[in-house]
Simulated assay, not measured.
Amino acid sequence: LMMNVTAASQGDELDRIGRAYASDLHDFGTFVDSPAETDELRALHEATDAAGKAIGTFAMEVSPELNGNLKRWRDLYRSLPHDEAAS
């Protein structure tokens, strides 16, 4: 679905990039299949995962209300004024 949306909305740009960099695609394909790329992707995933966990932990320490109290958030939403003037 996302590939179709991208192709439909940015197809001309993708074609331009394809023409400009076609000569590099073989080398790029070889790199993507290499152990070096696998290691790079693994390191990126591990760093992103660690950052997400650290941010989540910090956010919950700073703002405990973020810690999954859905009822509290619903009650807060319901307590807000709902007329357009107050909004």
Results as ranks from 00 to 15, higher is better:
1 L>C: 00
1 L>S: 04
2 M>T: 01
2 M>I: 03
3 M>V: 01
3 M>G: 00
4 N>S: 00
4 N>W: 00
6 T>M: 02
7 A>G: 04
8 A>N: 02
9 S>Y: 02
9 S>R: 11
9 S>H: 07
10 Q>L: 04
10 Q>T: 01
11 G>T: 04
11 G>W: 06
11 G>N: 06
11 G>S: 02
12 D>E: 11
13 E>C: 08
13 E>T: 10
14 L>H: 05
16 R>M: 10
18 G>M: 08
19 R>K: 15
20 A>G: 06
21 Y>S: 08
21 Y>P: 01
21 Y>L: 11
22 A>T: 03
22 A>L: 08
23 S>E: 14
24 D>V: 11
24 D>L: 12
25 L>G: 01
25 L>R: 08
25 L>I: 07
25 L>T: 12
25 L>V: 07
26 H>P: 06
27 D>Y: 03
28 F>H: 12
29 G>W: 09
30 T>K: 13
31 F>L: 11
31 F>D: 07
32 V>C: 10
33 D>F: 06
35 P>V: 04
36 A>G: 08
37 E>F: 15
38 T>A: 14
39 D>F: 07
40 E>H: 15
41 L>Q: 12
41 L>T: 03
41 L>C: 08
41 L>I: 06
41 L>M: 13
42 R>I: 06
42 R>Q: 14
42 R>G: 02
43 A>S: 13
43 A>N: 11
43 A>W: 08
43 A>M: 05
44 L>E: 14
44 L>Y: 09
45 H>N: 10
47 A>T: 11
47 A>Y: 03
48 T>D: 07
49 D>P: 02
51 A>Y: 10
52 G>Y: 08
52 G>C: 03
54 A>F: 05
55 I>C: 03
56 G>F: 05
58 F>W: 13
58 F>A: 15
59 A>T: 07
59 A>Q: 13
60 M>S: 09
60 M>W: 08
60 M>K: 15
62 V>W: 11
62 V>R: 15
62 V>L: 12
63 S>F: 15
63 S>W: 14
63 S>H: 11
63 S>V: 13
64 P>M: 02
64 P>G: 01
64 P>T: 04
65 E>T: 03
65 E>L: 07
65 E>Y: 10
66 L>E: 00
67 N>E: 05
67 N>G: 06
67 N>Y: 05
68 G>M: 02
69 N>Q: 05
69 N>H: 07
72 R>H: 15
72 R>M: 13
72 R>F: 14
72 R>P: 00
73 W>Q: 09
73 W>I: 02
73 W>M: 10
74 R>V: 14
74 R>Y: 13
74 R>T: 09
76 L>E: 13
76 L>P: 00
77 Y>D: 04
77 Y>F: 12
78 R>Q: 13
79 S>P: 02
79 S>A: 10
80 L>M: 11
81 P>F: 06
81 P>K: 04
82 H>E: 09
82 H>D: 10
83 D>L: 03
83 D>N: 15
83 D>I: 03
83 D>T: 05
83 D>P: 03
84 E>H: 09
84 E>Y: 14
84 E>K: 15
86 A>I: 00
87 S>E: 10
87 S>K: 14
87 S>I: 06
87 S>Y: 08
87 S>C: 10
87 S>H: 07
